Computed example of a mutant assay.
Amino acid sequence: MSTKQGGKAKPLKKPKSDKKDYDEVDMANIQKKKEEEKALKELKAKAQQKGSFGGSGLKKSGKK
Rank of each mutant, 00 (worst) to 15 (best):
S61T: 08
F53Q: 09
K44M: 08
A9Y: 08
G62C: 02
K8H: 09
K20Q: 13
A28F: 07
K64Q: 14
K59V: 11
N29S: 09
D18G: 04
K41S: 09
S61A: 10
K41N: 10
S52P: 08
K44Q: 14
T3D: 13
P11I: 00
Q31Y: 07
F53E: 10
G55P: 00
N29F: 04
Q31L: 14
K33E: 10
A28M: 08
K10G: 01
G54T: 03
D23P: 01
S2D: 12
K38G: 02
K32Y: 11
G6C: 06
K32Q: 14
S61R: 06
Q49A: 15
G54W: 04
S52M: 07
L58H: 08
A45G: 06
G62K: 10
S17G: 04
K16N: 04
G51Y: 06
F53H: 06
G6K: 11
D23N: 15
Y22F: 15
K33V: 03
L58F: 09
E35K: 07
G55R: 01
D21Y: 09
K16H: 01
K8N: 08
K14D: 05
K50W: 01
T3L: 08
M27H: 04
K33P: 00
E35C: 00
Q31V: 11
M27F: 07
K50E: 12
K16W: 00
K44A: 06
M1P: 11
D23M: 04
A47V: 03
K32C: 05
N29C: 05
K20E: 12
K32V: 02
N29K: 15
V25I: 14
K32I: 04
K38R: 14
K20Y: 03
G55W: 02
S61L: 12
S52R: 13
T3I: 02
G7R: 11
K64P: 05
K20V: 15
K50V: 12
K19M: 03
L43K: 13
A45Q: 11
V25N: 15
D21H: 14
V25H: 15
K64D: 13
S52H: 07
I30F: 03
L58R: 13
E37Q: 14
N29G: 05
Q31T: 13
D26I: 08
F53R: 11
K41Q: 12
K64W: 11
L43G: 01
G57E: 03
K14M: 03
K63P: 01
K33H: 13
K60N: 10
S2V: 06
N29W: 05
K20A: 15
K63Y: 12
E37T: 04
K38M: 08
K14I: 00
A47E: 13
L58W: 05
K8G: 02
K8S: 09
S56Y: 09
K64R: 15
A28R: 12
V25M: 09
E35D: 15
M1V: 06
M1N: 07
Q48W: 02
K63T: 09
L12C: 00
K59D: 06
K4Q: 12
